[in-house]
Each structure stands twice: as structure tokens, then as C-alpha cells.
Amino acid sequence: MKTDSTTLQAPPRAKTARLRFPPRRPDPVAITPAPTPAAKSGRRGQTRRRVLAVVKHVCLILLVVVALYPVIWMLVSSLRPDGQIFSNPSIIPTTLHWENYTYGWTALTKPFSTYLVNSLLVVVAAIAGNLITCSMAAYAFARLKFRFQKPAFAFMLVTIMIPIHVVIVPQYILWSQLGLVNTFWPLIIPKFCATDAFFTFLMVQFIRGLPKSLDEAARIDGAGHGQIFFRILLPLMTPALATTTIFTFIWTWNDFFAQMIYLTDPKLYTVSIALRAYIDAQTSSSYGAMFAMSMVSIIPVVLIFIFGQKYLVQGIATTGLK
């Protein structure tokens, strides 16, 4: 057995690893029957495998329930009167106490719709900024030749790693000198400067995967860089653009740090900041309303998740975005 494990890492096998066929699932245990031992115990092996699969599914379903329990419980609790929330750990809906929602909607100085609109404004602007400027930068890095290309690209990569906390103090000073604290601009302008280097990198990788002959053919036909970018590459980049859109949406929607620092005027509060204000404003007796508004705040993320799952998974798998 020991020799087996060493031969497993022998060079010839390693070479087969490089022959990459279209992605497929390594699936030796569940589908491919093991040659000798299983052939003998044919039917018994099959039932055993079936039992194993059932056990596996039961375990996984249990795990899913555990993992999602808190969120489901929050949903159910948001429809319970306050008195019942604390005593009832079950996720079986008992009441439909919509009053939590109507009360929560108006519990702060502004109706909750104000905060939703504010968040949406910031999110939409951030998406537009990232889509436009990151794709432009990516085109330059992937297809153009220019001076200082290598150091510029390296710097772009480094900015992915730099924690926001290093630059937040000087950035705050900058925005406050410009008189833009308590506006949405400090949250929006950076997105129009391609500061989310993740996405630039994602798109660079994507463009590099597109055949260069496309550009060259267009150039022979007399297309300039603008036309090549807009007419040829951009339409082909849809998956990368979709991933960028979805991640920008979720990150900006969930963002708390930057929004809290720049937005202190209650009428500019985004959903994140408004929820935090709930904690400060309410006593623990109004958990129902707080849960209700928490649910409202995560619904957009859940919707985006449901409809954009394909691009989300692609994005994470290729670049390791969160």
C-alpha cells in the first residue's frame, strides 16, 4: 500500500494531469465501479452505495438546515409579536404579525424607503463606475502596449492587497477638505476611478482569454481602439461584466465602514447605517421590527444571489472573490 501512494505521485501521472479536457467531475467512487472487488459483489455493492448516498443526503440536508437556521428563524421571527420571539426557537411560522414591518418602516426619522433609495443610488452608481472604468483599464492592460506597463500592472495588483484602513484616513481628510463629507460622492467617485482593482484584474484575465485575431481583423478593417473595445471586446465580456455587477452590488449594499464614515446625516443614511441606528434607537423589546427591517435589507442580496448564481460561482472560482 505504501508503494501505491508513492507511485501515485510519479511523474507520468503528473503529466496526464496537464492534459486538460473540458471540465468534468472526478467521480470514481460513485459512478465508475471499481474493477475487481466490486465486480464480485455487484448487487450488494450497488445497494451499499445507494444507502451511502441516502445517508450523505440526510447529513447534507441537516447541515443546510443548521447553516440556514438563523436566517430562516429571523424571517419567521420578523412575523411574530415581540413577546413570542424570545420564547420561540422554532422556525415553523405561527403568526403573520405584519405590524413589525409597518412599524419598522417608519420607526426612524425617515421612512425606510429613503434608506433603500439611498443604498440603491450608491449601488447603481458604483456598478456603473466599476463597469466603465475597470473594463477600460483592463483593455489597456490586456491589449495595449505603453510605457511603464509592467510597473503599472504590478501596482494595480498590489492595490488589491492594500487594506482600506491604510488609505481611509487620508482619503477622509481629502473628502472633508473638498467639503464632500455627507454626500454620496466619496462613495461613488472612487468607483469611477477603477479603484476596485479586483474587477480590473478579473477583466484583464478575461480579455487575455479572448483571441487576439479578433482585434487584428478589426484593425485591418480600419477600426480604432475605441471601436475594437466597444464593438468587439465589450460584447464578448458579458460574463465578466455580469460578475462585476453582481459583486459590486453585494459588496456596496453590505458595505458599512465607508458608508458610516462618510454619511452622518440621517437623510443620507443607507440601509446598513439605518440598521445600525435601529440598534442605538431601540430597546431590546422591539426586536420584531428590527428583524423585519433586517429582512428587508437582505432581500435584494438574496434576489441577486438567486438570479445571478451562475456568474457568482464563475467569479469566485476564477478569481477567489468573496
Binding site: A67, L68, P70, V71, M74, I250, W253, N254, F256, V271, S272, L275, R276, Y278, I279, M290, F291, S294, M295, S297, I298, V301, V302, F305, K322
Partner: peptide, 14 residues
């Protein structure tokens, strides 16, 4: 799903 929600204020409240 939890990793999308995990950084939100809503989950921290929860």
C-alpha cells in the same frame, strides 16, 4: 448564501 450575508449589518444584528 451565508457568505454573502455574513458581512451585512442585518446578520450582525441577528
Amino acid at each position: 448564501l451565508p457568505s454573502l450575508l455574513g458581512s451585512s449589518v442585518a446578520i450582525a444584528v441577528l
